[in-house]
Simulated scan of single mutants.
Amino acid sequence: MDLLVSLSDKLNGIVLRVCGAMVAVLLAINVYGVFFRYALNDPLPWPLPISRILLVWIALLGISVALKAGEHVAVEGAVRALPLKYERYVRIAGYGVTGVWLAVVLWHGWLATAAADQLMMISSKLQISFKWRLAAVPASAAVQLIHILACPAIIDTALKQRGEDRP
């Protein structure tokens, strides 16, 4: 289990750095595009489609960061209302259901990515495979599944924080 938690921690650090770099690139591309569009009155065709691809990747990888931090979408009020001994079981069940869902998303995302053969026309000379956008789905699901497999550590952290929050 320690190996899995260590892998999850390292992967989360990598994802955070990659997302940070993508946000910086997204910002630079948008500023560049805005400058050409409004200052030079010569809009470029590629900033918007590239920004869309980056935004999809940032959003989907960001979900894995939230999951690792225990901040994934949940009904926290109902879960926290339970006694501590039941809360652990409810959280494990929730992560189990999420894990099954992520396995389905990973599988179908992989199939969709492998089957995609369309090209996105960025300009008359620049085309990007649609696979680059679709690949964010199985990549994010795979990272989230690794975090789910390390969920006992996430749950223990959440329960420890809850115990510290009590008066």
Rank of each mutant, 00 (worst) to 15 (best):
S8I: 06
S8H: 10
D9T: 11
N12P: 00
I14V: 15
I14R: 12
L16A: 11
L16Y: 01
R17F: 10
R17V: 06
V18Q: 09
V18E: 11
C19H: 03
A21K: 00
L26V: 06
L26I: 05
A28Q: 10
I29P: 03
I29R: 09
N30G: 13
G33D: 04
W46S: 13
W46R: 06
P47W: 04
L48V: 07
P49Q: 02
R52S: 11
I53P: 00
V56M: 14
I58P: 09
A59D: 02
A59N: 02
L60I: 13
L60D: 07
I63C: 09
S64W: 05
V65H: 08
A66V: 14
L67V: 15
L67W: 05
K68H: 14
A69V: 01
E71D: 09
E71L: 03
E71T: 08
H72N: 10
A74R: 15
A74H: 06
A74N: 12
V75R: 01
E76N: 12
E76C: 00
V79E: 07
P83A: 08
P83H: 12
R88G: 01
R91V: 14
A93P: 02
T98R: 02
G99I: 04
V100Q: 05
W101C: 15
L102P: 12
A103C: 09
V104Y: 11
V105L: 11
W107P: 01
W107S: 04
H108C: 04
W110Q: 10
T113S: 06
A114I: 15
A116N: 01
A116V: 09
D117V: 07
S123W: 07
S124H: 06
I128Y: 01
S129G: 10
F130T: 14
L134P: 03
L134C: 02
P138N: 12
P138S: 04
S140M: 13
A142I: 06
I148A: 10
A150D: 08
D156G: 04
T157N: 13
L159D: 03
K160L: 12
G163I: 12
R166S: 14
